[in-house]
Amino acid sequence: MSNQRRNFLRSALAGAALLACASLPAHADTLADIQRNGTLRVAVPQDFPPFGSVGTDLKPQGYDIDTAALIARELGVKVELIPVTSTNRIPFLTTGKADLVISSLGKNAERELVIDFSDAYAPFFNGVFGPEDAAVATVADLDGKTVGVTRGSVEDLELSKIASDKVTIRRFEDNNATISAYLTGQVQFIATGNVVAAAVNDLTKLRRLSAKFLIKNSPCYVGVAKGQSALLTRVNEIIAKAKTDGSLEAVSQRWLKAPLPADL
């Protein structure tokens, strides 16, 4: 499409959306705002254990929430958690309603055009799980099978990359739907995190999840709005420090029941 036509489309569509202009009033420096307000606003998941789910008081908890608290502590400010879903997490960031997105984000080239990503802050041990007796050892064995996955999650991105066209991937709204689909036999396999599979096996004896193969360890990154280089640099410093002083290791042990990989 020619640049001119694209520009025309862009302005026509944006205009129709009743937008006075096609860009945000530039937030000069989010880091300075955070320090002035004394609050770090972080978009976190609440439907994606162990990274973010809720406790009995309905307050978010998990790896992502602990990471948010850790970053706020290092910045010397309070943390304000904004529970988000995979649908609205990026708009919260791009409209300046959140300062950071810590929502087990995986990265790809397209996504990097829209937001900036920090260094990796969490490992993600995903695998394909299924019935004990299913003979699946590699991704090639999934051909002709149906695999459930949570739409937009790291495992969705990674599985979509490696699976052939012959694999039917069913993408559900959240972990609950993905797991329910497996437990009720609506899908033959699911791709999910190790810890999630273990927790499901603890909670239900309906249809056990047995690990078939591991998907490449694909880490998670903190999302920062474009153009906030000061904030991005500061977040990267904090993550680097947390990796060496053991504080991120503690978070990993607590939520993933595994040590932080050395190559993260």
Binding site: Q46, D47, F48, P49, S53, V54, G55, L58, P83, D174, N175, N176, I179, S180, A199, V200, L203, T204
Partner: peptide
């Protein structure tokens, strides 16, 4: 409901 279903796996 959806938050609870995701935390309890009891949909």
């Amino acid at each position: 409901g959806s938050m609870l279903a995701n935390a309890t796996f009891q949909p």
